[in-house]
């Protein structure tokens, strides 16, 4: 993969994972994901997404417990 394509690839993977957490994806974008993203990108983005999700939940809990 050419170097200049990496950044959009990462953003696309982040977008795919964001929508995956919600469980909804537009057909056109889903097809673009299938063509443009490698499984490794999606898995890495998924693990990062899960970590961010846990951190966000912990933040909410902290705010609630401290208030």
């Amino acid at each position: 993969m050419a170097r200049d394509q990496r950044k959009p690839g990462f953003l696309q993977a982040a977008g795919a994972v964001f929508w995956a957490f919600f469980g909804v994806r537009k057909r056109r974008q889903g097809e673009a994901d299938a063509v443009g993203l490698s499984p490794v990108q999606v898995i890495v983005a998924g693990l990062v997404g899960a970590a961010l999700f846990v951190l966000a939940l912990l933040l909410v809990v902290r705010l609630l417990v401290n208030s």
Binding site: W19, A20, G23, D33, G46
Partner: peptide, 19 residues
Amino acid sequence: FGYASMVYATASIAILSFI
């Protein structure tokens, strides 16, 4: 209906099931 959503939702459920 929403094949891609179904795949994504399955993956999402799998990840969430660990936490």
